[in-house]
Every structure is written in C-alpha cells, then in structure tokens.
C-alpha cells in the first residue's frame, strides 16, 4: 500500500515530501488544521487528501489500517482525524476508542457508507465528533475541516 512515510521523530513529513519542524499551537492554527486520514481504500484517502490540500489545512499522515492509525495518531497528534468505519483488522470503532484513550479531546470524524446507522450510533457513543457518508463531496469535507479550524 502506498503510505505516507512518517519519521519516528517529532518532525513529520508532509504530503509533498518536504520536512518541517512540528509547529507550535499558534502556528498550527495559522497553518490550518492538521489532518490524519484513515481508510483502507487508497482511492478514498486520495479523494479526501486532494480536497484538504485545496484548503489551507494540511494532511500530516495517512493510514490504511486501524493499527497504523493508532500509531500515527500518537506520533502526530493531528487536530482532526477522518476515520473509515469498516476496515479489515482493527475496525474504525476500536481505532476510535484507542485514539480517545490517548486523547479524550481528539476530534474524530467517521467516514461511513449508507446503511451503517447502527455503527454510527456506536461511534457517536464512543466519542466520534461527527460523521460523513460516502460518497461525500468536496463541500462536506471542507465544511468539517472549517468547523474544526474555527
């Protein structure tokens, strides 16, 4: 799978491959929202990433599984996570719980498909901030990012 490579240090590599130092809280606001995208479908990750890159926010990481998402969240501490509900291995709900255990204030938006109402209710109970339903359009993604960015 084509993953964004994240270094083990406090520095992160952005999507264009340029390295940057971790920003301070004020810098993070000035630079927009730091987003982690989690979906087992590269197609979906790319779609979300392209929309976010058209704003002043940045994609700090991508994960193709729940396991990677948990690891990357701990390392990158993004402001916002787009998290697919259905994934092989550790699913979206379990991943959400792990992220919330690391940071109860984490903002996690679940990416769902039609017909997943029961799982959505479970995700909300586990602390999901919001959800968007596939196929989402550009405006829905931007609206979520703006809400987080204030």
């Amino acid at each position: 799978m084509d993953y964004h490579q994240i270094s083990g240090s406090d520095d992160a590599e952005n999507v264009s491959g340029q390295r940057r130092a971790s920003p301070s809280a004020d810098e993070a606001i000035a630079m927009g929202v730091k987003v982690l995208i989690v979906d087992d479908s590269l197609f979906m990750r790319t779609m979300i990433k392209n929309v976010i890159l058209s704003t002043d926010s940045q994609v700090v990481g991508e994960a193709g599984s729940g396991e990677e998402a948990i690891q990357l969240y701990g390392r990158l501490r993004p402001n916002l996570v787009f998290l697919d509900i259905i994934m092989p291995g550790i699913g979206g709900i379990e991943t959400l719980k792990e992220i919330k255990a690391m940071n109860n204030a984490a903002t996690v938006v679940m990416c769902t498909s039609l017909g997943q109402d029961r799982i959505i209710a479970e995700a909300v109970a586990a602390g999901a901030s919001d959800f968007i339903t596939k196929p989402f359009n550009k405006d829905e993604i931007i609206s979520v990012v703006r809400k987080i960015g204030g």
Binding site: L42, F43, L114, G115, K134, P135
Partner: peptide
Amino acid sequence: DFELDALRETANIGTGSASIALSALVGQKV
C-alpha cells in the same frame, strides 16, 4: 492496484445505496 481499489470502492458505494433501497422494500437489514 490503485485502479482496482478505486473500482471496488465505486462498487461499494453503489451497493451501499442499493442495499438501503432493498432494505426499505423488504423491511430487513441487508
């Protein structure tokens, strides 16, 4: 692989919509 992934996701989305319609018609979870 990238194209196949995109095609599978396309089918996922279509089937998600279709299953909602079918579920409403038969009154059962699909």
